[in-house]
C-alpha cells in the first residue's frame, strides 16, 4: 500500500569539499527533485554542508547484524594490513 506521505529517502551531507558524504537522517518526498530540495531545507539550514546526496531508502543494501562475525571479524586477524605492524628504522623519516 502506498504511503500517502511519499516514499522514504536517506540523506547524506558533505560538509566540505573533499570530505566523505555522511548519513544524517531521512525524510519523505514524492520525487527526486523534492527529496533534494527538502533535504536542503531540513539538513543544511545551519550551513552544515555544501553538497547533498539523496537515495531512496529501499535502494540501500545493508549488511546484516548476524553477518557481522563472518563479514568483519576475519580482518581483525590480518594485522599486517595496519601500518602499526611495521617497524620503520630511525633516521628514515616519517612514513
Amino acid at each position: 500500500m502506498k504511503d500517502n506521505q511519499g516514499p522514504l529517502w536517506e540523506v547524506f551531507v558533505q560538509k566540505k569539499a573533499g570530505q566523505p558524504f555522511v548519513h544524517c537522517g531521512n525524510l519523505h518526498a514524492f520525487d527526486k527533485e523534492m527529496a533534494l530540495q527538502n533535504a536542503r531545507d531540513l539538513y543544511t539550514r545551519r550551513s552544515e554542508g555544501m553538497a547533498l546526496w539523496v537515495v531512496l531508502s529501499s535502494n540501500i543494501v545493508s549488511s546484516s547484524p548476524e553477518d557481522a562475525g563472518s563479514f568483519f571479524e576475519p580482518s581483525n586477524d590480518k594485522i599486517f594490513r595496519h601500518p602499526t605492524f611495521y617497524q620503520i628504522p630511525d633516521g628514515v623519516g616519517h612514513m
Binding site: 506521505q5 511519499g6 519523505h28 530540495q37 527538502n38 531545507d41 531540513l42
Partner: peptide
C-alpha cells in the same frame, strides 16, 4: 500539506 513542504514554504 505535509511536514516537509510546511518547512519549505516557511523557508
Amino acid at each position: 500539506p505535509f511536514l516537509e513542504e510546511d518547512l519549505a514554504l516557511t523557508n
